[in-house]
């Protein structure tokens, strides 16, 4: 494992910690898209199907369990917790799941490495992860002011993608027979989605203003 991959995993973990911090300490999920969180839960559920059958490393198994556990608990908090769910901005979080799920599934049926249930679902999870942030970005645009924790949550998620991209470039040059066009394709789309957000994130940070995305 290289340093870029590790940093990517850790920023991914940081994004989840920031979100849980907001939910646990402030008891608020204001500005967080439940749609995006549900899509991430689906991403991890379909990607880590082999968690108990294929052993890679203790690190991998533990991280997979953390991602699965936290993503489903975040969804539970936003839907069921007696105070947290009251802060959910339901009226602005209107993006439909199936607009993203259906095309990703159809694409995974056509573009995959092998036509097996396991492989198609794994490919589906990569395509879906690439676009799962879209409902969150739409909600950010509709929010008048984005609070710091929400802004930092999306920032860490974007940083994770950036580091994974550098990791793939690094692995491409350092490992033999490293052919992974599905990961590349999905990864580039996913990282590109954050470019706009990063522009406004750094702009607000530089000017010491509250983050606001233009509608």
């Amino acid at each position: 494992m290289n340093i870029f991959r590790l940093t990517g995993d850790l920023t991914h973990l940081m994004s989840i910690i920031v979100l849980l911090l907001k939910i646990h300490t402030i008891k608020s999920c204001a500005g967080i898209s439940l749609k995006t969180q549900e899509l991430y839960a689906l991403v991890f559920a379909t990607r880590y199907l082999d968690i108990f059958t294929t052993y890679i490393s203790l690190y991998n198994t533990v991280m997979k369990l953390i991602f699965l556990g936290t993503s489903f608990s975040i969804v539970w908090y936003m839907r069921r917790h007696k105070t947290v769910r009251l802060s959910y901005d339901k009226n602005n979080d209107t993006f439909r799941h199936y607009f993203l799920v259906l095309p990703c599934f159809l694409l995974a049926l056509v573009l995959n490495n092998r036509f097996t249930v396991r492989e198609v679902l794994w490919t589906f999870s990569l395509y879906l992860e690439a676009v799962a942030i879209i409902p969150q970005l739409v909600l950010l645009q509709r929010s008048k002011n984005v609070d710091n924790l929400t802004g930092n949550y999306v920032f860490f998620l974007g940083a994770y993608r950036g580091f994974y991209l550098i990791n793939w470039i690094y692995r491409y040059f350092t490992e033999n027979h490293y052919r992974r066009w599905i990961t590349w394709m999905a990864g580039i789309v996913q990282t590109a989605l954050y470019v706009d957000f990063f522009y406004y994130y750094f702009k607000s940070w530089k000017n010491n203003e509250k983050l606001k995305l233009p509608a």
Partner: peptide
Amino acid sequence: GEGGDAKDEL
């Protein structure tokens, strides 16, 4: 790997 996408990443 076997020439496909590696599964060692999260």
